[in-house]
Amino acid sequence: MASQRLEGLDLARYLAFVGMVIVNFKIAMGVEDGTGVLMTIATLLEGRAAATFVVLAGIGLGLAAQRSAYDQTALVILKRAAFLLVIGLLNAVIFDADILHYYAFYFLFGVLFLRASNGWLIVAIVAINAAFVVMVFALDYDAGWNWDDYTYSDFWTPAGFVRNLFFNGWHPVIPWLSFLLIGQFLSKLQLGIRRTQIWLISAGISAFALAEVSALYLARFLRWVPELSELADLSTTAPIPPMPLYIFAGAGVALAVIGICLLVSDVLDRIGILGVVTAAGRQTLTLYIAHILVGMGTLEVLGMLGEQSIGSAFFASLAFCALATVYAFLWSLIFKRGPIEALMRKVAG
Rank of each mutant, 00 (worst) to 15 (best):
M1T: 11
Q4G: 08
Y14F: 15
A16M: 07
G19E: 02
N24Y: 09
V31Q: 05
E32C: 04
G34V: 07
M39A: 13
I41H: 07
T43A: 14
L45A: 07
A50E: 01
F53L: 07
V54E: 00
V54Q: 01
L56E: 01
I59Q: 03
L61F: 09
G62E: 05
L63R: 06
A64Y: 11
Q66C: 06
R67S: 10
A69M: 08
Q72F: 10
Q72V: 10
A74E: 05
R80C: 06
L85D: 01
V86M: 10
D96Q: 14
D96H: 15
F105V: 14
Y106E: 03
L108S: 14
L112C: 09
L121M: 11
A124Y: 07
I125D: 01
N129G: 10
F132S: 03
Y141G: 06
W145G: 04
W147R: 11
D149K: 08
Y152H: 09
W156L: 11
F167V: 08
N168P: 06
W170H: 15
W170A: 11
P175W: 04
W176E: 05
F179N: 05
L181M: 09
I182L: 10
S187E: 06
S187Y: 10
K188Y: 06
L189Q: 15
R194S: 12
R195P: 04
T196P: 05
A203W: 15
G204Y: 03
F221W: 12
R223S: 14
L231E: 01
D233Q: 10
I240Q: 12
A249Q: 04
G252A: 08
A256T: 12
I260H: 06
S265Q: 13
V276E: 04
V276Y: 12
A279I: 11
T284G: 03
Y288R: 00
H291P: 03
T298S: 09
L299M: 15
A316V: 03
A316D: 02
A319P: 02
Y327T: 15
W331C: 08
R337I: 03
G338P: 01
M344L: 08
